[in-house]
Simulated scan of single mutants.
Amino acid sequence: MSYTVNTLRTMTRSCEMMRDRVKSVVFKPEDRKVLDLTFGPTAAAELVGRTPEALAKAEKEGRLSPPKQLGNGRRYYTLEDLTNIREALHIHPGKASDEDAVVVAVQNFKGGVGKSTVTKHFADYLALHGYSVLVIDCDPQASTTTMFDIQPESLIDEEKTLGNFLSPRSTFDDFRQAIHATAWPTIKIVPSSLGLQDAEWDLTATLREGGQAVREGLQRLRIGIQGVIKDFDVILLDPPPAMGFLGLNVMAAATGLLVPVPARQLDYLSTIHFMDTIADNIEILEENGTPVDYGFIRVVCSTYTPSKPGEADMWKMMQATYANFLLSQPILASEEIKNATQAFRSIYESKPSAAHATYQRCRDNLDSVFNEVLQQIREQWPSQSISKRANDAVTSVAA
């Protein structure tokens, strides 16, 4: 074994050992992430879309179990309690059962723009509010997979992975078998693994075959998702930071696009190239029998620090450039997010690492950003669409 290979192998083993030590501290005494989230009556009522008084009345009438109680008399609900409340009161915030999930790609070619962080936090936000979510990690680096406490190394030899499904050489045709549970009751994940890179090479090889083989190679993810499209409210795709066959599969499968762009000049300039490349590749997909038509495209300014003059100027430039395609609220840079990510968690899974007010500001900011995206998603479901209901009302009056 050469010096270089031996050195890299040694460094890898050392990093793996340290990773396991860190996780043993973070999740101690459990081996896996456990959500110990609790909610007071006001917070619980807000999350399920009812008033505290309405919940108290339902509990008094026996329609709901009473909340748990601490020794000091403080009442609280768990995440499972919220699910039970929604079921008992027939609260379903998502789509109708016969409607399709909205498939959102959190896409940008440039690394370091916060794709995986946005994907993880948005998934947790949706789950907290009662939506059923499937996360598909399409990046061989597997950052999102790791955030959901799945070790990609353990999936290399498994047959039930995204990489195995996407490979044209594979006879694995049941997409459902690649879906794994997470610590969140209403979030499932199709994890990434190192084998996903092999799928990229296999898919690229279909170019030599042309015709139908290329079309199938471009649509494999879309076909897989179609088998579970009615089982979830939202499907989030975390693509690789490059436009190969994996990236084209993501573009072909998505029905909505969320583009994170930090308020930095280089990121802004690279996004110009990204938008142009996306348009070029959609034309390639359509030329190969794979039509693409997104229900919405939105840009979100990520890791924004208003006190930095350069970033404040970039935010104004982004507002002028993207206009209505830019979310009105940027994601503010926060140590809370950094600290949570280092603990393999999102803000929604974490306790405050600093002052409670600092944590709450961070969480309120994320809530505002994700609520804007959620409204775009709801517009894609006829049963939830405000514009659809308004049009139906006008048609009814005219008739």
Rank of each mutant, 00 (worst) to 15 (best):
Y3R: 01
Y3T: 11
Y3P: 00
N6W: 03
T7C: 01
T10D: 13
M11L: 13
T12H: 12
E16N: 06
D20R: 13
D20K: 13
K23R: 15
S24E: 10
F27V: 01
E30F: 14
D31G: 14
K33W: 07
V34A: 09
L35W: 07
T38P: 02
E46M: 08
L47N: 12
V48H: 02
G49F: 05
T51K: 13
P52E: 07
E53N: 14
E53R: 11
E53S: 10
L55M: 03
A56K: 13
G62I: 02
P67V: 03
N72Y: 03
L82Q: 11
T83K: 14
A88V: 08
A88C: 06
A96I: 06
A101D: 05
F109G: 14
G111A: 10
V113I: 12
K120S: 11
L128P: 03
G130Y: 03
Y131K: 10
L134P: 07
V135F: 06
I136D: 09
D139T: 06
A142Q: 09
T145K: 03
F148C: 01
F148A: 09
F148W: 06
P152Y: 08
S154Y: 07
D157G: 05
L162S: 13
L162Q: 10
T171G: 12
F172Q: 15
F175T: 10
R176W: 09
W184D: 05
K188T: 14
S193G: 08
L196A: 09
A199K: 03
L203T: 11
T204F: 06
Q212W: 09
A213I: 11
V214I: 15
R215C: 02
Q219W: 04
I225Q: 04
Q226E: 12
V228W: 14
F232W: 00
F232N: 01
D233T: 01
P239S: 08
P240W: 00
P240D: 05
G244S: 15
F245T: 14
L248C: 09
N249D: 08
P260V: 01
V261I: 14
L266N: 02
S270C: 04
I272G: 00
I272V: 12
H273N: 07
T277N: 00
N288I: 00
P291R: 10
P291Q: 12
G295Y: 11
F296G: 07
I297K: 14
V299A: 06
V299C: 05
T303E: 02
Y304C: 03
P306T: 09
P309C: 08
P309D: 11
W315F: 12
A320Q: 15
Y322C: 13
Y322V: 12
A323S: 10
F325T: 02
F325G: 02
L327P: 06
Q329G: 00
P330L: 14
I331Q: 05
A333T: 01
E335A: 13
E336R: 08
I337E: 10
P352H: 13
Y359D: 07
R363E: 15
D367W: 02
V369G: 04
F370H: 04
Q375S: 14
I377G: 07
R389Q: 15
A390V: 04
N391E: 15
V397W: 15
A399P: 00
